[in-house]
């Protein structure tokens, strides 16, 4: 049989647990528990909102459609800038290890404000004009993104291994950093390869 002091300890523990339970709604207002992993998503989908049927063999005068999407899991609302860049095979990609963006200038941009846990998606249409070929080079003079024309003058050499004139439509995600009061590359980028056929 337990001694009276042991029972006293049981009652005191029950009292403490009870007080903690009753105080939990108030404590939850004061204590901030650490959340889960903070990250953002960036994606490109094909014209049917699926990860398939991406434009690949492209030609001048035709319009192509993809969808760009962003997901926010940063634990609070976030301010993103999605940059659309266009590169040939020799121009640098972002460096995921060093978390540095591609030095190419952005052509088009989306400014996106997203609450935590929400996603955003927007259409991205593009077409090419003034495409010419000479010797083993292909030159694109103008790229039209969402009905805005950009003069790019971008050439690429014939790729013997993959048989084609390859370019890449590159999408980078940048995020506004409240501490530095500036946008920083969020180390998220996606791209689709395009083979200029005509």
């Amino acid at each position: 049989m337990l001694k009276i002091d042991d029972y006293k300890l049981v009652f005191m523990s029950a009292g403490l647990i009870g007080i903690l339970l009753f105080a939990s709604p108030t404590l939850s207002l004061v204590l901030r528990l650490p959340g889960g992993e903070k990250f953002s998503e960036l994606w490109i989908l094909g014209p049917e909102h699926m990860a398939e049927d991406y434009p690949f063999n492209v030609e001048a005068g035709e319009e192509y459609l993809v969808y760009v999407g962003v997901g926010n899991h940063m634990g609070c609302s976030a301010y993103y800038v999605v940059y659309v860049k266009f590169r040939n095979q020799n121009e640098p990609l972002p460096n995921a290890t060093a978390a540095t963006p591609s030095p190419l200038p952005p052509l088009y941009e989306y400014r996106v404000f997203l609450e935590d846990g929400k996603t955003w998606e927007a259409p991205l249409t593009f077409s090419f004009s003034y495409v010419s070929r000479f010797e083993n080079q292909c030159l694109i003079e103008a790229l039209i993104i969402n009905n805005v024309t950009f003069s790019i003058d971008k050439s690429t050499a014939w790729d013997v291994n993959n048989i084609g004139y390859y370019y890449q439509l590159l999408i980078e995600l940048w995020i506004y950093n409240v501490e530095s009061e500036d946008f920083v590359f969020h180390n998220r980028f996606v791209g689709i390869w395009l083979n200029m056929t005509g």
Partner: peptide
């Protein structure tokens, strides 16, 4: 308001329980 309301309820509940 919510904080003070919660705190009051917590104090009353705890006192009754004790």
């Amino acid at each position: 308001n919510i904080f003070w309301q919660n705190l009051s309820i917590t104090l009353v509940e705890s006192a009754v329980f004790l």
